[in-house]
Structures are given as C-alpha cells and as structure tokens.
Nucleic acid binder design. Sequence first.
DNA 1: ATAAGGCCCTGACCGC
DNA 2: TGCGGTCAGGGCCTTA
Length: 276
Amino acid sequence: MPELPEVETIRRDLARALTGRRFVDVDLLWPGVVRHPSPEDFQRCLVGQRIREVARRGKYLLIRLDSGDNLAMHLKMSGSLLLRSPSSALDSYLRAVLTLDDGNQLRFYDPRKFGGMWLVAEEEAITCKLGPEPFDAAFTPEVLHSRLVRRAVPIKALLCDQFCLAGVGNIYADEALCDARIHPLRKAKDITLEEAERLHAAIRSVLERAIGNRGTTFRKESLTNQYRDAYGEAGRNEDALLVTRRAGAPCSCCGTPLQRIPIRGRGTYFCPDCQR
DNA sequence: ATAAGGCCCTGACCGC
DNA sequence: TGCGGTCAGGGCCTTA
C-alpha cells in the first residue's frame, strides 16, 4: 500500500535509472492498466518518447517527457514498479512492460488491478484537485488548520483524503495522529490551531522518517502484494511504526494496549491513553 | 454542499 | 489437506 514515502522512494530509484532514456516498446499484458487514452493510442504515443524527469505529486508518479506529455502512474493498493532486465522471469501479475533504449525494462505489477497509468498532455489533468504537498513550503500549520474547519468528519478520514492533503494514507495518518496525541475520531472542525501545529509537525516527521527508511513493507517474506522499491527490495520502516497493525501490543509511550477500530471502513490503530 | 456506504480486485488468513 | 468465508484498502461512484 504505497503512500508518499514509498512512492518517493520509487521515484528516486526511477529518476536515476530512467532520466534521459527513451521508451522503445510498450507491451500491455492487461490493457485495462491504461486508464487514458485508449491502450492503442497509449502505446503509439509513448513509444519513442524520451524521459526528461521523474516527479511525484501525492501518491502519483509523474514521468515527464521531452514532448511535454506526462506519463502518470498510481500503484493504489498492490502495485509495484520494478526495473528489470528483459531476461528476468515474468509472473502472472505483470500488467505492462515498458522497454527502454538501454535494454532494461520498467515493469508494472499489480495483483489486484487497482493501479493504473495515464498519458496526458497536461499533468494538471491528474493533479489539479489534490491538496497541498506535505513538504511544500506553502503547507503551514495555518494552512492545515484552515482545511479542517467546518468538516464534521473524523480527523483520521480527512487526513487520508487526497483533496485535503496529498500523499498521506491509512498508515501514516494513524502514525501522525499518534505522534501528535490526537484521537482519530476527533471531528476535524474541533482541532485547535495548537493541535494543528502538532499534527503538522507530526505529519512531516513520520513521512520524513519513513522516506529515510525507504518505506514500510509488512510481510517481507511475500514477494507479491507488498510494497517493494524499484529493485524489489523491502522497506525498513516497519520497526519505526508506533501503532499501525499493533492492536493489543503495549503503547511504546505509556504501555496501554493499543486499539484497533474501523473508521470509514479502514482499520485505525491508536493508543486510547495517549490520544484523547 | 457534505457525509456515508458500496464497489473494484485477489492474496492472505482463519476456522472447521 | 482442503474449503469457504472474511479481511485488506485507494480512490471513485452513488446515495442520502
């Protein structure tokens, strides 16, 4: 379940490997992975294009091309992007193979078929509705607070809303709320400016640490269905998590057993003592 | 306008 | 060992 730290790790891997390369072949093993335009137009337009840079906005990877076109990718729950040589083995979750002019391949794996790719002239078509980037200078505690007013939803749900804030998902929302000592069911509109300041610092802190650890991989023995970087390596951030998937375990701060409750259908972990 | 629930998918996991 | 049921969840869609 790649969120901002995982997508950023992949972005850095891809930036080193892909910048300046050219796509020479596009093989769609499951054409449904292409969301726009048609699979045929996607292939025809992408072949021959040179990669100018690899960027990220929220959980979207953006491959900017010399023509000005943009290849956007979203991994959703179970997608991964792997840099492989053409001789390495394929498997049944492979949805697309983008072959480069140095002979290597960018392979899009996705067991659950939630992920997708878009080829668009303007990247704003993909990103225009997203909320602020957590590390953008324009994202201040005041901006965060202003986006919470008049919203009656639980703060946890709003942190996961990409239109409110880009890049944070289920894991890092729980982690940030724990770090900021805010109960996940608190209504967003009741969060004070002082709490928003704590939350702002916590969001950046947990994301920064996760990026430093190259993301969170839960079942490291499973080669499918779990986050991997572009070289197939697991992230090391699991041990740094405060609450996620640790229901019943003692809070590292106070020893109280951590709880798990559903919020908007998503598993939510928190410390009932630290987070009031 | 906001809020809530269903849906897409399929591997992993659990109880029998 | 096998099998059916349930869970996981990002983002989009429909409904209230």
